[in-house]
Write a protein that binds this DNA or RNA. Structure first.
Length: 421
DNA sequence: TCTGGGGTCCTAGGACCC
DNA sequence: TCTGGGGTCCTAGGACCC
């Protein structure tokens, strides 16, 4: 049996995570909101049927949510991240190499295993992941990643479906591609979809059969690769090892607007700290620091947005140094008289932190700072985030605790929040 | 009143070089 | 009359993903 690629896609992932620990949410419409309870970012099937849009502002769906008694959860990324790790662990039982694509999706390779068919293997994966983690998944099986994505999506939207679709056969490919709109193809966004539609290409099958040179010219090389992938030619490699990160961002919209530099300083200090923590967890050091501020683009008030970027003489992974540059940038770009909605810190020029020993050698101050970071990280890992903080924040948790009024307990990662029976 | 956060890659155009 | 040709690097902005 020829090798095939399977995409395992968790259904309505954030909602499903909430349901694992709160069975009262089963069978009823549920949505999960973004930070500040701003947008709907995950919906149960029941909620989708009520017409609640993906990414739609919460306040716009509020009426339908109240009318139909939709359960509403603030996002709980600690829980989702941990559940994701469990799902990926389960998948490793089926294939040694798992290509983790996002928090709720992964590719694995499927071959002939003891003569069992691909669909049968897909059903077993689905059953086991469900049993071990409580998360329902869809499985798409095909010769390429793009076709596997298409298969998983198709089986999820079909009303009578086993949750598994084997798209390796020519006939089933023909039928499914013909029934899939081009804008549903992975990598085709709204802009490319309307361009393709104008050219008379409206289904995935028509895109597959389009002139690849024309697609290359009018869209991009990425789009040309999609065409090849739809034809069954592998262009997107299976990635056994996670690719090296290129940047780390920490940014937030504020619960309320502010015009004060002091407020922005607090926010930027917190974001720099968070970004630096993530940087160290990834085992990286950064040599480029960017800080940005933005006003509320939805407001009628005067708009302003700016950023400052610094290239560091030598890379670092210490919070103090990174935060210093972020503050310096903030001083540069801050303008009085505007009401700010959002700020953020981006760390770039990433490289493995191991190479820092070059710099450490002979730089005692830097060496001390790095030892301090290791100690701080260890304490925070052991006793919970923000047990130790860097610098002197005005408020223990920043000025704007992100609004998370409806967040569920972090069942799997906080001892004081475990499920009580 | 109320619109998230974190990423990647590609392209076009300008600056600059020989 | 008649203005080369080819290359690299950088950046901003666009498009897409979840």
């Amino acid at each position: 049996m020829a090798e095939a690629i399977a995409l395992i896609d968790c259904n309505d992932f954030y909602v499903s995570c909430e349901r694992v620990f709160a069975p009262r949410l089963l069978g009823r419409p549920v949505v999960v909101l973004s930070n500040n309870d701003g947008c709907v970012i995950s919906r149960s099937e029941e909620a989708k049927r009520l017409g609640i849009g993906m990414g739609a502002p919460y306040f716009k769906s509020r009426r339908v949510i109240e009318e139909h008694g939709v359960a509403v959860c603030s996002s709980n990324y600690e829980l989702y991240g941990d559940m994701s790790r469990r799902v990926m662990c389960a998948l490793r039982e089926f294939a040694p190499e798992v290509d983790v694509y996002s928090i709720d999706e992964a590719f694995i390779r499927l071959g002939g295993r003891g003569g069992r068919g691909l669909e049968e293997q897909g059903l077993e994966i689905r059953k086991k992941v469900r049993a071990w983690t409580g998360i329902p998944v869809s499985v798409g099986i095909a010769p390429t990643k793009t076709l596997a994505k298409l298969a998983a999506r198709h089986t999820r939207t079909e009303t009578k479906s086993s949750g598994v679709l084997d798209l390796t056969g020519a006939d089933v490919q023909e039928a499914v591609l013909g029934a899939t709109e081009v804008r549903e193809v992975w990598g085709v966004g709204p802009s490319h979809a309307s361009l393709l539609n104008e050219a008379g290409i409206s289904t995935a099958r028509e895109l597959r059969d389009a002139d690849v040179r024309w697609v290359r010219r009018r869209l991009s090389v990425v789009a040309a690769r999609i065409v090849e992938e739809l034809r069954g030619v592998q262009c997107l490699p299976f990635e056994e090892c996670p690719r090296a990160r290129r940047s780390v961002t920490c940014s937030r919209s504020f619960g309320e607007l502010t015009g004060s530099l002091e407020d922005l300083r607090d926010a930027v200090a917190l974001y720099a700290e968070r970004a630096a923590e993530r940087l160290r967890r990834a085992g990286c050091a950064a040599s480029v620091v960017t800080v940005f501020v933005l006003t509320d683009r939805h407001a009628a008030a005067p708009q302003y947005g700016n950023s400052a970027t610094y290239e560091l003489a030598s890379p670092t992974d210490t919070t103090g140094e990174l935060a210093w540059w972020a503050q310096r940038g903030l001083t540069q770009i801050y303008r009085r008289g505007y009401l700010y909605k959002k700020a953020g810190v981006i760390l770039g020029g990433l490289r493995p932190a191991g190479a820092l020993s070059m710099r450490t050698h002979g730089d005692e101050q830097f060496e001390r700072a790095r030892r301090a970071m290791r100690a701080v990280d260890a304490l925070n890992r052991r006793h919970g985030r923000d047990t130790v903080r860097c610098g002197l924040p005005r408020a223990p948790d920043g000025r704007w605790p992100t609004k998370l009024l409806l967040r569920s307990p972090r069942y799997t990662t906080r001892l004081d929040e475990v499920l009580r029976v």
